[in-house]
Simulated scan of single mutants.
Amino acid sequence: MTDTMTDILSLLSEMKTISLEEMSAVKLMKRNDTKYVTNVPTLMRLLQLTQSKYYVQEINDSRIANYNTLYWDFCDDHHYYLIHAQKRKPRTKVRTRRYVDSGIAFLEIKRKDNHGKTRKKRVKVPMQDTIMQDSLVGEPFLEEQLGLKFSDLIPAMSNFFSRITLVNYEKTERVTIDFNLRFDNHETGKKQRLDNLVIIELKRDGRTHSPLLAMLRELRIKPSGFSKYVIGSAITNSSLRQNLLRKRLRTVAKRINHPDSYLKEYNDEEKKVNIEN
């Protein structure tokens, strides 16, 4: 275990916990979602501030969950990537997500409409990689939702990350904190990691009071759109159109305090260790 992970776990150990069953009661009917990008040292300071106002989700005695997501796109024009890179609406993502600690996986269709409202539908699949080996797994769901077959798409890019989930004591908002990001491009074979990057997403009920907003302002953490699929694809596939992303990539580099070399390649053995532990 790295020193960073040890420090994060130490901070989380000081917080009250909330179970997955209790989390299901936190229904945000009129939800506003806002993303923020920062770095690991600032995350440490943020966790100190949240200790007296937020629960941390705990599942099977663990307060950090590990995720593996595989994104699908059209092989000829990378339509889903381009739509997202251009911030056009409506837009769609097709992905399979595996909860590494439990092994449970879902095929998910995530849509954002013209009003910015996000809707997600999913179906459980035996294993994430099963779809790559047998396209009939999950294909009826894909046809029902989008009128597509898996033969129309290719597995484009995978990511791996760790997540902390917080809930305020009033249970009017959820906060997800993603870090330890790894990217693996299935087309180019290129792998990259963003060691110091932290993505925070605040999901709250309408415009209710949020203790987190004051903390974010205190730490000078500003709202910033961030798509793991788009950024991960851009930094692992140089053939994709990236002119619209240059500003966002510079912003990411600046906020994680590595303006010249914030990308680090990683090998298969290191990736294996990070996934399994």
Rank of each mutant, 00 (worst) to 15 (best):
M44V: 02
K30T: 14
R97Q: 11
L43S: 00
E58H: 04
Y71E: 05
T38E: 06
L49H: 10
L46V: 00
R63E: 04
C75V: 12
P90C: 02
T96S: 14
T34S: 07
R97W: 12
S52Y: 11
Q86W: 10
H79G: 07
T42G: 01
H84P: 04
V37Y: 01
Q86A: 14
L43R: 00
S62V: 09
L82G: 06
T38G: 05
R45H: 04
L43Q: 00
R97V: 08
W72F: 15
Q48H: 11
K53Y: 12
Y71A: 09
Y71W: 03
F106H: 12
Y36Q: 02
F74E: 13
F74A: 08
Y99T: 09
Y80Q: 06
L82I: 13
I104Q: 14
S52V: 07
Y99G: 08
H79S: 12
A105R: 03
L82E: 13
K35I: 03
T38M: 07
R98I: 09
Y99H: 09
L70Y: 04
R88C: 10
T42M: 06
L46D: 02
R98M: 15
Y80N: 11
R31H: 07
C75G: 06
K30E: 15
T92D: 11
L82A: 10
A105F: 08
L43W: 00
L70W: 03
F106D: 15
S52A: 14
K87T: 11
R88T: 10
L47T: 00
N60Y: 07
T92C: 14
T69M: 04
A65N: 14
K30C: 13
K53R: 14
R97A: 10
M44W: 06
F106E: 15
R45W: 01
I59F: 06
S102W: 03
P90S: 03
L47W: 00
T96E: 08
Y67K: 00
R31C: 08
G103R: 09
N39Y: 05
T69D: 05
Q51E: 12
L82F: 08
L46R: 01
C75A: 14
A85S: 14
L43C: 02
V37K: 02
K89P: 04
L46Q: 01
K30Y: 15
D61F: 12
I59G: 02
I59A: 05
P41A: 10
K53M: 12
I59N: 03
G103P: 04
S102V: 02
R91D: 01
N32E: 15
I104H: 11
Y81S: 05
D76Y: 10
D73K: 04
Y81M: 07
K30M: 14
Y54R: 01
T34Q: 09
Y67R: 01
H78V: 05
S62D: 06
Y36G: 00
Y81G: 04
Y55F: 07
L46E: 01
V37E: 02
T50H: 01
Q86T: 10
